[in-house]
Amino acid sequence: MNGRFATAFLPRDLCDIRSGSRTGQQTCERLARYSLRAAAENTISEFIDSPGHGPGASPTIPAG
């Protein structure tokens, strides 16, 4: 596209459907569920990214 931007418009009926779906996503119940899920995903990601965890980590050998 030679570095140019292209603008595309959906047909009116598809635009109305998409708009309605987005409006439904902004309910308090849905936002609360999303917030909880995002917090859980962040906790898991932080654990995996911490030293000694995740891909390439060597197994822990219990002292004993």
Rank of each mutant, 00 (worst) to 15 (best):
R18G: 08
R37G: 09
C28F: 01
N2S: 14
R4L: 13
R33T: 07
A38H: 00
A57H: 04
A38V: 04
A32C: 08
E41L: 12
A63R: 00
G64I: 03
P55R: 09
R37A: 05
I61K: 09
T23H: 04
P51K: 11
Q25L: 15
A57M: 02
R4D: 03
T7M: 11
P59V: 07
R18C: 14
I44N: 06
P11M: 08
P51F: 04
R33K: 14
S21D: 13
I17L: 14
A63V: 01
P55N: 14
T23P: 01
T43P: 00
G56D: 13
E29I: 08
A38F: 01
P11L: 05
A6C: 10
G20I: 03
G56H: 09
S21Q: 15
S21F: 07
L10Q: 13
Y34I: 09
S58L: 05
S58C: 02
R30N: 15
I61A: 13
E29S: 10
E41Q: 07
T23E: 04
S58D: 02
P62I: 11
L14T: 02
D49W: 03
G52V: 08
D13R: 10
R30A: 13
Q26M: 15
T27K: 01
A32E: 07
C28Q: 11
F47H: 04
F5N: 06
T23Q: 12
A39M: 05
T43A: 09
T23D: 03
R30P: 11
F9L: 15
R4V: 08
S35G: 08
R22I: 14
C15H: 00
D49S: 04
G3C: 11
A63N: 03
L36T: 09
R18V: 15
L14N: 11
P11D: 12
L31A: 08
T27P: 03
A6R: 13
R37I: 01
A57Y: 01
G54A: 03
R30V: 14
G64V: 06
L14W: 02
A63H: 00
S35P: 05
S19A: 15
S19Y: 02
